[in-house]
Write a protein that binds this DNA or RNA. Structure first.
Length: 622
DNA sequence: TACTCACAG
DNA sequence: GGCTGTGAGTA
């Protein structure tokens, strides 16, 4: 007999409840030394070349090949060259002061002898655009395979694999072990409150990756292990797909919660995956000397203060918490409350801990140490704002004219990032407000903002430059005569309040004359753009992979199911093998009927291609 | 709404 | 360590 009920199994097929199910299955996938990998691939090096990504004279990402020489992110480029004379330092792309496009200057950097080829913060601004682009490409692949994807940062994602695993278990005809449970499910001969049948013996499936199993437990103790096994097969396929098509290696962790899966993906690197069985979670947390500060969001002051407050021992803090408060979080809450009260006048030492929130803190901690803290996997909303920022050194911004030169850079960067979004979503992004902020030696911050007129359907860098210059001039007139205003130490431009419109249509075409558009973003890659006008109300539900729109959420969900079916049959019935020789574009056409995005027409692209003609990193967009 | 702080990569 | 980004809390 299983310890899980039918309800637990059926729930993982629900987008909204899966993360709460006892059979939940989450993956965290992380691109290894991402910036270094991007540069390695762009410049046609191999994984064995000791590539590092450089910004001025600091190393911001170290490839695994370079780590073998003991090089770390803390090393200056000079230190690193001492450790490895074969080092391949590659500088990030940069904007030149006064220009509105970025470029790679391969062969240039702080480490070269030629003075003319030195890249310095006085005259350049780093561009992270190439990494954001590659990140989006990777994200697209995840979205093709999985219905719930959360982009956690530029180089990591969470996947809720509930539906995927459920489908593999119930509908994959090539695996015979599950015929009986499938029959019962399909005939409807089950009750949600009944326990599942025992896991069949001699399963014809195998884990992909490393199962964390120090106690040598049976690999398939119950259905959770079956789910995780299917998940491991799937994530391996997804990761292989990403490596085949884009070249990136990734690390993956599979577990029942986000926090455990994140620890797991970090456990073995690079290019590995680690599965934490539910029955091994406590072993994992205890054996691998994790502390509460190891958990996400606990890495800073909050974790420190919490550790102190609870008088946690240095070693085995997680086990200590579990053993000290074994049954409920209530006693833990009581303990925290008492401690805070005892603190009395020293209370402000723990300013991070809010005494009205002790129940929530206790609950979270109680669950975290048991691998039971269940956060849902949420797609992040598209964008709220965008900033282009420059810390200025020395005299690189000593008057109004210098400001304008940097504003050129900011305008170009923001414009490029908007173009990217427009390509990705096939929508127009129109920011309605713009802000300029400055910092100097003698003052913390002066800022000005204004609304952006939107003239016609296109906004480009000139509009930002114009509006930004005006604001900067106002600041200059107001404070510029003050001694200590110049040279500025920081200058930035930000845009916000985006209107998101269908391409080729004006807001009036879409929604009528007195339309006011409000944006709503649905979780997942299926977003809805909702328009509210005085008279009519209309919703569009968009399937990003296909760029099809639907008039109801129901239709969209139905359509989405079609995607999973295709992907899963591809994955499990060997279609993957058959299509191995096809190009990515052909594969995508085959499986998702998706049009390739048009070749990017941004200024950045043409410049970039010119400067590095050998690069084929963006070939999939051609 | 704007600003600061905490946190992360 | 420099840089970018997000969310929570606060005035």
């Amino acid at each position: 007999m299983s310890k899980y009920k039918w309800r637990d199994l059926v729930d993982i097929n629900s987008k909204t409840r899966s993360h709460l199910s006892a059979l939940s299955c989450i993956a965290h996938i992380d691109a290894n030394a991402f910036f270094a990998q991007v540069e390695q691939i762009r410049c046609h090096y191999t994984k064995d070349d000791p590539v590092v990504c450089v910004q001025w004279s600091s190393i911001i990402a170290v490839s695994y090949a370079a780590r073998k020489y003991g090089i770390t992110r803390m090393d200056s480029i000079g230190d690193a060259l001492k450790k490895c004379d074969k080092l391949v330092p590659i500088h990030t792309a940069v904007f030149r002061k006064g220009e509105d496009f970025w470029q790679y200057h391969d062969g240039c950097g702080s480490w070269v002898d030629d003075e003319d080829k030195k890249l310095t913060p006085e005259n350049f601004k780093v561009s992270l655009d190439p990494y954001r682009r590659e990140s989006r490409k990777i994200l697209k692949v995840f979205n093709e395979w999985c219905d719930v994807v959360e982009k956690a940062s530029v180089d990591e994602v969470f996947l809720d694999l509930g539906r995927c695993c459920f489908s593999m278990l119930m509908f994959d005809e090539s695996v015979h072990s599950f015929n009986e449970i499938r029959r019962v499910f399909k005939e409807g001969e089950y009750d949600l409150d009944l326990y599942l049948p025992p896991v069949p013996r001699n399963l014809d499936i195998q884990f992909d990756g490393n199962v964390y199993n120090p106690e040598k437990r049976s690999l398939f103790e119950d259905w959770d292990d079956v789910i995780f096994c299917l998940a491991s097969i799937l994530t391996n396929r997804i990761r292989s797909n990403i490596e085949e098509v884009l070249g990136y290696t990734t690390s993956c962790g599979i577990a029942r919660t986000k926090s455990i899966s994140k620890l797991a993906s970090n456990f073995k690197k690079p290019a590995a995956q680690t599965i934490i069985k539910n029955s091994c979670i406590e072993d994992f947390l205890d054996n691998e000397k994790f502390e509460i500060t190891s958990f996400w969001s606990m890495g800073g002051i909050t974790g420190q203060e919490l550790s102190q407050l609870l008088n946690l021992p240095k070693e085995k803090t997680i086990k200590y918490i579990r053993d000290s408060w074994p049954t409920t979080s209530d006693e833990l809450k009581g303990f925290i409350d008492t401690k805070l009260r005892e603190m009395g006048k020293d209370r402000d030492k723990y300013h991070t801990i809010d005494e009205t929130q002790t129940q929530a803190i206790a609950d979270k901690l109680f669950q975290l140490v048991r691998g039971e803290y269940r956060l849902s996997v949420n797609a992040k909303p598209m964008v709220k704002s965008m900033m282009s920022n420059k810390n200025l050194r020395g005299n690189s911004c000593k008057n109004f004219k210098d400001c304008i030169a940097w504003l050129e850079v900011f305008s170009g960067e923001l414009d490029g990032r908007i173009r990217e979004l427009e390509q990705e979503y096939n929508r127009l992004f129109i920011p309605k407000t713009i802000a300029i902020s400055v910092r100097g030696h003698k003052f913390q911050k002066h800022a000005k903002s204004s609304s952006l007129m939107f003239t016609g359907s296109h906004i480009h860098s000139k509009d930002f430059l114009e509006a930004g210059s005006r604001l900067t001039q106002e600041l200059d007139m107001k404070f510029g005569k003050d001694s200590g205003y110049y040279p500025l130490t920081n200058l930035n431009m930000s845009i916000s309040n985006f209107e998101i419109l269908e391409k080729g249509k004006t807001i009036v075409d879409m929604f009528g004359r007195q339309a006011q558009v409000t944006k709503k973003v649905e979780p997942g890659n299926f977003s809805s753009v909702e328009s509210v006008t005085a008279e009519n109300k209309e919703s569009l539900f968009l399937c990003q992979p296909c760029d099809l729109s639907f008039s109801s959420e129901e239709q969209l969900r139905e359509h989405a199911d079609y995607h999973y079916a295709l992907k899963l049959s591809e994955s499990l019935n060997g279609a993957n093998e058959d299509s191995k020789n096809l190009s990515y574009g052909e594969r995508r056409l085959l499986f998702s009927k998706r049009k390739r995005p048009a070749c990017s027409s941004s200024k950045n692209d043409s410049k970039r291609v010119k400067s590095t003609p050998q690069s084929d990193i963006y070939k999939f967009f051609k």
